[in-house]
Design a protein around this nucleic acid. Sequence first.
DNA 1: TCTGGGGTCCTAGGACCC
DNA 2: TCTGGGGTCCTAGGACCC
Length: 388
Amino acid sequence: MFFVQVARLEDPDGAGREPLLLVGGRSNRGVITSASYAARDFGVRSGMPTRRALQLCPRAVVVPVPRGACVERSRAVGGVLRDLSPVVQAASIDEFYLDLTGTERMLGSEDLAVTADRIRREVRESTGIAVSLGGGTQRVVAKVATRLAKPDGVHVVPPGEEASFMARFRLSDLPGIGPAFLRQLAQKGLRTVADAAAVEREWLARWFGPARGAWLWERARGIDASEVDATGRRKSISSERTFFTDVDDDEELERRLLKLSASVASALRGRELRARTVTVKIRDHDFRTRQAGNTLPEGVETDRVIFAAATSLLHRLRHRRRTGVRLLGVGLSNLVRQAPSTQIDLFGEGPELETERDRSIARAVDQVRDRYGREALQPARVLDRPEH
DNA sequence: TCTGGGGTCCTAGGACCC
DNA sequence: TCTGGGGTCCTAGGACCC
């Protein structure tokens, strides 16, 4: 409900008054990101094509995702949580894990459900966002418990009741089990968590492999020792766009690639990072998804070098298969911190990928856009040709 | 009624190194 | 003459999450 809530807070007289509210893409190829509970009664679900949602619920109103406002509100929620809990991990824009280990003395004998409810009220008062909290001694238990807390409530599983709590659910309710694993499980006649808990460890390992077998054996008992990671390190930055209609023209694809490259490069610099790996992703007209990547000897951050790498990857993909393109994307990974000073190429082991001059230009462009808006400075045309 | 965009993690094969 | 065993890194694809 996060996106619906934000859309309503941003437009109280419009979206705020609309009970049948859908947030998501409105183009011919859009999907629903989030639907109000009233709209869900019509069978609308997130991820569903907007066209289909409007057939199920013709009187619904569709508004675009208020992206910027969602990021702001998410940060605000995270801020409140960090004031109330020592360890907070932002798992996504609308989901956080809190590790309250060590706060027992501070909280005295207060019941965890009381603590959770206080957190819930505090978040709502400070940010206007209604949140649900699930609690437990194991991460997977807390996660599954949030389902029972929705909307706008709290559900805490007492210590010792983890296994019996988990036994109430279907395997499809477990985070980490999707359509593919579900099919495999069904082939062995396993549908519920209780079904899986009744199978011996060795059999699960034999059926699903040692890693997944052990994983399933533990989750079916509510065992999940994975830590709450509060470091907040980004591992990748990407941007992708589905076109209104398929694009088959190479020059048009390069123009799109330039915009995507500039966008991820700017996000990269905004986090004071450099990327060693550039990846280009294509989804062809028949929905076949392909990607090509290149890892550079050092981290880069400028539009020029990232676009040059992306262009040569795009050509590689197009060379392998040249057909109508539905989606184009650029990703950056292998992220490293920006070096405090320029490295000097003492031994002449090859030219630097980007110069300090490149970086100064890129950062100057960022500053202009910060002050005068994204539209203030834009690439005029495709400047660089690929190396090969 | 064809299927968004932002992510994370895992796997398997190959190159390369000692 | 024709081949071990350990490791890391890179690439591509896929499953999964919200």
